[in-house]
């Protein structure tokens, strides 16, 4: 497992959804901008991430990712003009979707750029 290359601020990583099959989407032209992530980038959650209500079959408030959990970016994709990342957290066998702007904002705040 590679070392985490970016820190996420979990308080704003609240958009999550289980989506293990979504792997084939094209990457947008703005993929992996200055603060963007690429597939394979390792990330580490700073604190706990809970279900905000759109992770299926789990109650609102359920813990999905704990602080310190290591994940890997699987892909970046767009939905109606907004970017999302699919991130796999290995220890939890959880695949979550996170809002791109929240991921990228977290990276900016942590002042650590994702590695390539």
């Amino acid at each position: 497992m590679s070392q985490p290359s970016a820190r996420l601020k979990p308080a704003i990583l609240s958009r999550v959804v289980h989506d293990p099959r979504r792997r084939s989407h094209r990457q947008g032209p703005d993929f992996a901008g200055e603060r963007g992530f690429r597939p394979g980038d390792a990330v580490r959650s700073l604190t706990r991430v809970t279900n905000d209500g759109i992770y299926p079959h789990r109650d609102i408030g359920d813990t999905l990712v704990d602080g310190g959990d290591i994940g890997a970016v699987r892909e970046r994709w767009n939905f109606l003009g907004e970017a999302y990342y699919t991130v796999e957290f290995f220890a939890r066998s959880a695949v979550v979707i996170m809002r791109g702007q929240e991921m990228e904002r977290a990276a900016r705040r942590s002042a650590i750029r994702p590695s390539r």
């Binding site: 958009r15 959804v17 289980h18 989506d19 293990p20 099959r21 979504r22 209500g53 759109i54 992770y55 299926p56 939905f79 109606l80 907004e82 999302y84 979707i97 809002r99």
Partner: peptide, 14 residues
């Protein structure tokens, strides 16, 4: 709303 609907679309496709 978009975030919710994005999750619905992903799940429906799955």
């Amino acid at each position: 709303i978009r975030a919710h609907e994005s999750s619905l679309l992903a799940y429906a496709r799955q």
